[in-house]
C-alpha cells in the first residue's frame, strides 16, 4: 500500500496541490533537499499530462497519485484512466502554432508535444511509462533515506 494516496479532479488548478503534497511527502521520506525541486517538477509534469488527457476524454474521472517510500526509494506513480492511444502526448494541444519563420526555428526546437515526458526523463532517476487500454501509469523514483522516521 502506498504511503500516501491522492485523487483529484482533472482540473489544472489541482496540479499545484498535487506537486506540493508530493514534495512534502518526499521531504518526509528523506529525499535530499537538492532533489526536491526535481520531484516537484516531475510530478507536476506527470499530473499536467494526465489532466490534459482526462480533459480530452474523461473529464469527470479523477486522477490518482501513489507516493511510496519503500526500500530506500521515494516512488511516485501518476495514474490516469484516459485510453492510452488517445492519451498520447501527440494529442495534447500544441501550445502555439508557428505562423512564419517556423522553418527557421524548427531545426532547433524539440518536439513540443513530448516536452513533458522529456522533462520527467531528465529529472527522475528512474522513469517508466506504462500505457494500457485503461490508461497510463507514469512511475518515477528518487533515492531516499529508508522509510519514514519513527518519531518526529
Amino acid at each position: 500500500m502506498a504511503t500516501v494516496e491522492l485523487t483529484f479532479s482533472a482540473l489544472p488548478a489541482h496540479v499545484r496541490t498535487a506537486r506540493l503534497i508530493a514534495t512534502a511527502v518526499a521531504r518526509r521520506a528523506g529525499v535530499s533537499e537538492d532533489l526536491l525541486d526535481e520531484v516537484r517538477l516531475a510530478v507536476g509534469e506527470a499530473c499536467s499530462r494526465a489532466v490534459e488527457a482526462h480533459r480530452l476524454h474523461c473529464p469527470d474521472e479523477p486522477i490518482r497519485i501513489e507516493l511510496c517510500d519503500d526500500s530506500g526509494r521515494f516512488e511516485v506513480t501518476v495514474i490516469d484512466v484516459a485510453p492510452s492511444e488517445d492519451a498520447d502526448l501527440a494529442e495534447r494541444p500544441e501550445p502555439e502554432k508557428a505562423s512564419a519563420n517556423g522553418h527557421e526555428l524548427s531545426g532547433l526546437l524539440p518536439d513540443m508535444s513530448d516536452l513533458g515526458l522529456a522533462v520527467i526523463a531528465g529529472l527522475a532517476d528512474d522513469v517508466e511509462v506504462i500505457p494500457s487500454a485503461k490508461g497510463v501509469r507514469v512511475k518515477m523514483s528518487w533515492p531516499a533515506v529508508n522509510g519514514l522516521p519513527s518519531t518526529t
Partner: peptide, 21 residues
C-alpha cells in the same frame, strides 16, 4: 516554478515575434 506548459508558451511567443522579425 516553470514547467513544460510554460516553455510551450515562451516558444509560442518566440514564433509570433519571429514572424515579425
Amino acid at each position: 516554478f516553470l514547467d513544460s506548459t510554460g516553455l510551450g508558451v515562451l516558444v509560442g511567443g518566440l514564433k509570433r515575434v519571429r514572424a515579425h522579425d
